[in-house]
Amino acid sequence: MRQFSATVVSNISLCRDLYRIDFAWDARAVGPAPGQFFTVRVSDSTVPLLRRPFAVSGYASDTRTASAIYQRRGRGTDLLAARQAGERLDVIGPLGNTFPPPKNSQRCFLAAGGIGLGPVLYLARHLVRDGRDISLVFGARTSAGVPAAGTFDGLSPAVCTDDGSQGFPGSAIDYLNTLEPGTFQDTVLYACGPMAMLKEYHAIAATHQCPCYVSIEQVMACGVGACMGCAIRVTTEATYARVCTDGPVFDSGVIVWT
């Protein structure tokens, strides 16, 4: 990981709820892999104080451009949304672990909920480039949370909305429950989204005995494993794991789902 001053390439609205920022990744820093994240100091003042973590939603190694999809949900992301192309961004990255690759024979089923789209999209593109057979489902509350089709880079996900305003009416999990049980045979599951969704995704994985990897969101202070602030409960002897360095990607069987 490195701390660097990045130049914003673009910062656009994808739909009412989601934004995407693209910026130049530092040449001396290792390129971010699917699952990894970075932190940004969004304010030069002390409000808000802490850096904000964002999952990488894409990385073009030729142009060294990284991107992240985010939601405006407070002062920190309001400030991020105000950054214009050409402005500087104080970035630390890449941080955290990566999605484990599937075994050769395995199909991949990817699910994203809301803002969890970013890391799942990056993983999906990566897997497709490697010639893997993938299925992608994306769930949002309403159509206002669904980006234009171009965002998905021809991946054609099954889009679900809770209110039925676009695509499948219901959650991404409801959609999964309509699929033939055979869908999950010899399949590895990946997901990022709200904890309640990930918990149900884990249950589906357990039912079909599929390996399942989820990317977890948690409030962070340091992002580098020092402060122990982003802990989540796990089934291992350690009792807690740090989302920032032990994760953000976890085998769903390791997490204590509450």
């Binding site: 402060c227 802990a231 009792t239």
Partner: peptide, 18 residues
């Protein structure tokens, strides 16, 4: 010591509570 249950952090005006 495993530490306390999550969440362990919350940001406050110009500060944080841990």
């Amino acid at each position: 010591r495993p530490g306390n249950d999550a969440p362990r952090l919350v940001e406050t005006p110009s500060g944080m509570l841990n």
